[in-house]
Amino acid sequence: MPLQALRTVARSQNGVGAFILQCKRLDFHYCDWAGSSKGMNSFLQSHLPAFAASNPQIEITVSPRPRKHPVIKGTYINGREKAVCVRNMEVKEILAKAELLRDANGEKLRKAKKPVKSANESVRGIWDPFHGANWSI
């Protein structure tokens, strides 16, 4: 065997070719009775159909959660969940929260310290003392 090959799997680069929205499900929980769900209930009636129609990639479920605060819960492709409590919020605020959950990628929030993150090796390479201008003492 003069030359063998190592097996690996090509890594996905979401958005380079196809873009897969990372939020795959949004659950809207409401309560018919409690006052903290007032905004949520009017959101479900007035804004949710348009929101669902403009985001067909997301599976949307609506279910009651009696005697609890209203919650929007997002399920993501990486297996994580994000839940936002929207008690006492206005319709506009709830829409903003739903869009926030839609646009999230499901990962834990962390600070991006470097401006660029790349899977490719640096074109320039790491510095080494043997190339480039020689240092004369």
Partner: peptide, 18 residues
Amino acid sequence: EQHFLSRQLELSKLFDFK
């Protein structure tokens, strides 16, 4: 092309010379 070819594969890392 969008789903398969867009994935990143470094061919130079597949070689295993004896």
